Computed example of a mutant assay.
Amino acid sequence: MEIKTLIVDDEPHALDIIERYIANFPDLHLVAKCNNAVQAFQILQKHKIDLLFLDIKMPGLLGTDLVRTLTNPPRIIFTTAYQDYALEGFDLNAVDYLLKPIPFDRFLKAMDKVFNGYRPDYLPVTPPSSTSTVKNDSFLYLRVDRKNVKLNVDDIYWVESLKDYIKVVLADKTYISKQKISVLAELLPDEKFVRIHRSFIVSIEKIQSYYSFAIEILGRELPIGRNYKDELRKRLK
C-alpha cells in the first residue's frame, strides 16, 4: 500500500519536522511539499494525493478555505499553532488536528487513525502470545499497523524507544510498533544484541565503531548510557 502525501505549511521548520516524521513510515510516499495554499491547490489538480498535512493560518488563503474549494478532498490532518481552529477543522471531516510543536508520539496517534481508515475491513490478527510480538531463534513477528510483520533478526540494526512505541531500523526500512522496548529486549537473542542506552538496543555485529560516549551504526551515532558502558565493553572484547 502506498499513501501519496502532500505537506503544506508556510514555516520551513514545520515542513522539515513533518517530512522527518513521514520518513518513518514505509507506506507513506511524499509527493511534494509547499508553503502556501495556492501552490497546494495546483499540486492537488495535477497529482492524486491521498493524505494532506495542512497548516491552517497561512498568508493569502487559509488551509480551511482551501479544503472548501476541493470537490473530493483527500484525507486531511490539520497542523497549526492555533487551537481556535479545532472545531472548524473537525467540521471539515479532518482525520486529526495537531497542535504545534508536534511531538512524535502525537503524530503516531494521528497516523494510527489514518491507517485504520485505510483498512476499515481489516481484521486484526490475534497474536499467538500475550504480547504483540512473537519470535523464534531466527525471526520475530512485529505488530505494525494491525498486522504482524515477519522480520529476520539478522536484518535488524537497532531498536529505538519512542515512549510507548518502538522504532525497529533495518538497512532500507523502518517499522513503528506500539509497545515498550523492554518487550524487544526479552525477545532479541542476547548473543546478537546489546542494550547501550535505556532507549537503544543494537546489533553487535553491525556496530561500525565506538567511542566512550557513542557507537556508530549504519552511519549514525547512538549514545551509550552511563549504566550500560561496562556491559558494552565486555561484549565488544
Rank of each mutant, 00 (worst) to 15 (best):
F107A: 06
K109F: 10
K109V: 10
K109D: 13
K109I: 13
A110Q: 04
A110F: 02
A110P: 00
M111G: 06
D112R: 12
K113W: 07
K113Y: 11
K113Q: 14
V114D: 06
F115S: 11
F115D: 08
F115I: 14
F115A: 03
N116H: 10
Y118Q: 07
Y118P: 02
Y118D: 11
R119V: 00
P120H: 06
D121N: 09
L123M: 05
L123G: 02
L123K: 15
P124W: 05
V125K: 04
V125I: 12
V125S: 08
P127W: 01
P127Q: 09
P127A: 14
P127K: 12
P128D: 13
S129F: 01
S129L: 08
S130C: 05
T131M: 05
S132H: 14
S132D: 11
S132G: 15
S132M: 13
S132E: 02
T133H: 13
T133K: 03
T133R: 05
V134L: 14
V134D: 09
K135S: 15
K135F: 14
K135N: 13
N136L: 10
N136A: 11
N136Q: 08
D137W: 10
S138T: 12
F139S: 15
F139L: 07
L140A: 01
Y141H: 06
Y141V: 00
R143S: 05
V144N: 01
V144M: 04
R146V: 01
R146I: 04
K147W: 00
K147R: 15
N148H: 15
N148E: 11
N148L: 15
V149W: 07
K150T: 05
L151A: 07
L151D: 03
L151G: 05
L151T: 12
N152F: 10
N152S: 07
V153D: 06
D154V: 13
D154Q: 11
D154G: 01
D155L: 00
D155N: 10
D155R: 05
I156E: 11
Y157V: 00
W158Q: 05
W158R: 08
V159S: 14
V159G: 04
E160S: 14
E160P: 07
L162I: 15
L162Y: 13
K163M: 12
D164P: 02
D164Q: 07
Y165R: 08
V168N: 01
V168A: 06
V168F: 11
V168S: 07
V169E: 08
L170K: 06
L170Y: 06
L170F: 07
A171N: 13
A171E: 15
